[in-house]
């Protein structure tokens, strides 16, 4: 019964309730979260099978005094079992592979020359330790990103010094920002709201403070925002 004393500590895990990556606010992020949940489901199946078998084996075949002199029979193999554990994992992987490959192919960041996308283009420049966002009418803002909702936002990422990584956990996964190389990353259909963005590749002493604010607004508000002078 002493083991029940552990239970309150398990409740502490409730502190992990707000994992923003698993509750994304854009269709790009939703596809990624879907992959996480989907693979998690498949893995839980495998995990359960393994744990149940493991527990059963450990309990049932454990060493006891009675078995001290027992020498088990020599088993050469079992075709049925062997086929099962070769084919079933393969099927599971095949099921997992289809959406993974599709989304990987769609969403991978691209070199600038190969990309051909319509949408709202924004130049993102990272440097130690600050973000600069340049909108299409050359309006330039530091550490604050304002984008319209329900649009394809095309980010042109480049770095002035070391490698940084552009990450808005609530909207989509991270993409590295590399010097002398422009990468294109598209985030689709963001929902209205205020989010946090950060640098996700260790870049030097102030890396932890290299953050920016993201505001997703309606298209009208965005157009109005563009007209304001950048001061």
């Amino acid at each position: 019964m002493k083991k029940i004393a552990i239970l309150p500590f398990i409740m502490l895990l409730a502190g992990c309730q707000s994992i923003t990556v698993l509750d994304p606010k854009s269709s790009t992020g939703k596809e990624q979260a879907y992959l996480i949940w989907f693979s998690l489901a498949i893995m839980v199946i495998v995990l359960l099978v393994v744990f149940i078998l493991f527990t059963r084996f450990v309990i049932r075949y454990r060493y006891t005094e009675k078995k001290a002199e027992y020498i088990p029979q020599d088993v050469k193999g079992n075709l049925k079992y062997e086929l099962t554990w070769t084919i079933v994992p393969f099927l599971l992987l095949a099921v997992l592979a289809v959406p993974t490959l599709k989304i990987t192919f769609d969403q991978s960041p691209e070199m600038a020359a190969e990309a051909n996308t319509n949408g709202v283009h924004i130049n993102v420049t990272a440097e130690q330790f600050r973000w600069t966002f340049e909108h299409k009418n050359s309006k330039t803002v530091h550490n604050e990103l304002i984008i319209p909702e329900n649009k394809d936002i095309v980010f042109h990422l480049s770095s002035k010094d070391v490698i940084h990584s552009f990450w808005i956990p609530e909207l989509a996964g991270k993409v590295d920002v590399i010097p002398n190389k422009e990468l294109i990353y598209v985030i689709k259909n963001a929902e209205i709201g205020e989010y946090d963005g950060k640098c996700a590749e260790f870049c030097g002493i102030q890396h932890a403070n290299m953050t920016f604010d993201v505001k997703v607004v309606s298209l009208d508000e965005y157009n109005q925002y563009l007209k304001q002078s950048s001061n």
């Binding site: 993974t100 490959l101 990987t104 192919f105 991978s108 960041p109 070199m111 190969e114 993409v175």
Partner: peptide, 23 residues
């Protein structure tokens, strides 16, 4: 290095080889 921008084809191929390994 999936976030480095090596392109969709490279990323997809390595996703396949990576899935082979845990198999």
């Amino acid at each position: 290095m999936f976030t480095v921008g090596l392109g969709p084809v490279t990323n997809t191929i390595f996703a396949i080889t990576t899935m082979q390994l845990p198999y």
